[in-house]
């Protein structure tokens, strides 16, 4: 009897785990406005409508499930225009992340095309850049912590820690909205990652005369926050949709209905 109970509970745990793997939980991020580093005119705030966001980035285990159902996205079958050669290069095989990766570590080395497809298969989508930045400016207690020095220092210090991509999700702080790992784990794809033009020559982007997407406005601010944000924008600026990198993962979002 006892044995049976154990089996039963193990079984139900298994079900729960796989369900969780299928459909990760989301939280609601309320409507608001913020002034982004780039992409706005005259420093005017951008409105972000209410939306839902995954609590955690997508994990290796979740992505493995996805591949088993959509084998055309496996390493062997993916078309070159949709992903680099480094696509899932740290995985043991086409359908297994293997022993060297944690099941609950964020999946990385995934291209924008595949990340987008993954979210669509869940009935979701990638967050927009504004949605992502808006949700990410919160710390534990407030919706906008960008002026807090400790918040900026936390983000900057991540740039100096190596191999954080191997860590499990959910170990950094839970922010005001209830999401984890916006900072301190991996970079994340956004649906419109390349909508902000950054020439790659940062000094040129500062040039007010050239009016390059209001980069000048943010550079004139002395606030340290810019350094953390600058790096995210510079990073996104270096990407193409088929690129995959070891420190870049993703999570999904959804309109609130």
């Amino acid at each position: 009897m006892l044995k049976r109970t154990i089996y039963m509970s193990l079984f139900s745990m298994f079900i729960a785990a796989s369900l969780w793997a299928q459909n990760s939980k989301m939280v609601l991020v309320k409507k608001g406005a913020y002034v982004p580093l780039y992409g706005t005119v005259d420093k005017k705030p951008v409105t972000v409508n209410e939306f839902q966001l995954d609590i955690y980035p997508v994990t290796n285990a979740q992505f493995q499930d996805f591949l088993k159902k959509n084998p055309e996205y496996s390493k062997a079958k993916i078309k070159g225009i949709f992903a680099d050669k480094s696509y899932l290069s740290h995985w043991e095989s086409d359908f297994s992340y293997g022993k060297n990766n944690l099941s609950n570590a964020p999946v990385t080395n995934v291209s924008w095309f595949v990340a987008k497809k993954y979210c669509e298969c869940q009935g979701k989508r990638l967050p927009t850049l504004d949605e992502w930045e808006y949700a990410a400016m919160a710390d534990e207690k407030r919706t906008d912590a960008r002026t807090k020095e400790s918040y900026t220092k936390y983000i900057l210090s991540w740039y100096e820690k190596s191999k954080t991509y191997a860590n499990p999700v959910g170990q950094t702080f839970k922010n005001y909205w209830g999401v984890y790992d916006m900072h301190g784990l991996v970079w994340e794809w956004t649906s419109d990652f390349n909508s902000i033009f950054l020439s790659g020559e940062s000094r040129k982007d500062k040039d007010t005369d050239k009016n390059l997407f209001c980069g000048s406005g943010s550079v004139n601010a002395t606030d340290l926050m810019n350094y953390a944000a600058f790096m995210r924008y510079a990073f996104r600026g270096s990407l193409k949709a088929k690129y995959t990198t070891r420190n870049l993962g993703f999570r999904c979002a959804k309109d609130f209905k």
Binding site: D84, N109, R203, G237, S238, N247
Partner: peptide, 13 residues
């Protein structure tokens, strides 16, 4: 840019 405009490179690229 002394080459900077042509050389912005993402990790792994």
């Amino acid at each position: 840019g002394g080459g900077a405009t042509s050389s912005l490179v993402a990790p792994g690229h």
